[in-house]
């Protein structure tokens, strides 16, 4: 959208000095169409981020699961003495810090790869919010960009407070 095509609708003020934001006046059809177009671009960007994040994480998790079974032949048995309980008790060891994860990945451990995939999945919504900030800023929608930036700050803050 060119700068010249931008009407008086969304941001400050038409000739009368009034805005329709919060002023309870319905936007004109042209203004509504412009808004819809902007929203559409943000929607497509966010949908793409989500899809890429989901597909990447599921592929990494599948590879990790494959490695787990490849390295531990006994896991594959349909009958046998090995119970899943050994892998799902609270004393089971698996990486739950970034250094342990790095160590597991360096040693080609399947469970490390699975955890990496799960972390990609966990970070997908965070990335989606970040893309929202950039998209809204790019579309010059300042109120929504600020709101989304606040959400991103809280999310990033929560990861630091967790001490990961």
């Amino acid at each position: 959208m060119s700068g010249a095509g931008r009407g008086p609708g969304r941001h400050p003020a038409g000739p009368s000095g009034a805005t329709w934001r919060g002023a309870r006046r319905a936007p004109t059809p042209a203004e509504a169409a412009r808004t819809a177009q902007k929203v559409r671009r943000v929607e497509l960007a966010i949908s793409l981020v989500l899809r890429v994040g989901v597909v990447t994480s599921v592929l990494v998790i599948a590879v990790g699961l494959g490695l787990m079974f490849a390295h531990h032949g006994s896991y594959l048995a349909l009958r046998g003495p090995l119970s899943y309980r050994a892998l799902t008790s609270t004393s089971t060891s698996f990486p739950h810090s970034f250094s342990a994860l790095g160590h597991a990945l360096a040693h080609d451990e399947g469970r490390g790869v699975v955890v990496l995939g799960v972390l990609i999945l966990i970070l997908t919504p965070v990335l989606r919010v970040a893309v929202g900030v950039v998209s809204f800023a790019y579309e010059k929608d300042a109120p929504m960009a600020l709101v989304t930036l606040f959400v991103l700050a809280v999310l990033v803050g929560s990861f630091f407070l967790a001490g990961a």
Partner: peptide, 25 residues
């Protein structure tokens, strides 16, 4: 997004077991 805000804590506390998380995800 709500879940991601507390997921970091769960990961660090060791509550995300890969052999459970993989088939679930």
């Amino acid at each position: 997004v709500t879940a991601a805000a507390s997921a970091g804590v769960y990961f660090v506390r060791g509550q995300i077991d890969p052999i459970i998380a993989a088939p679930v995800a």
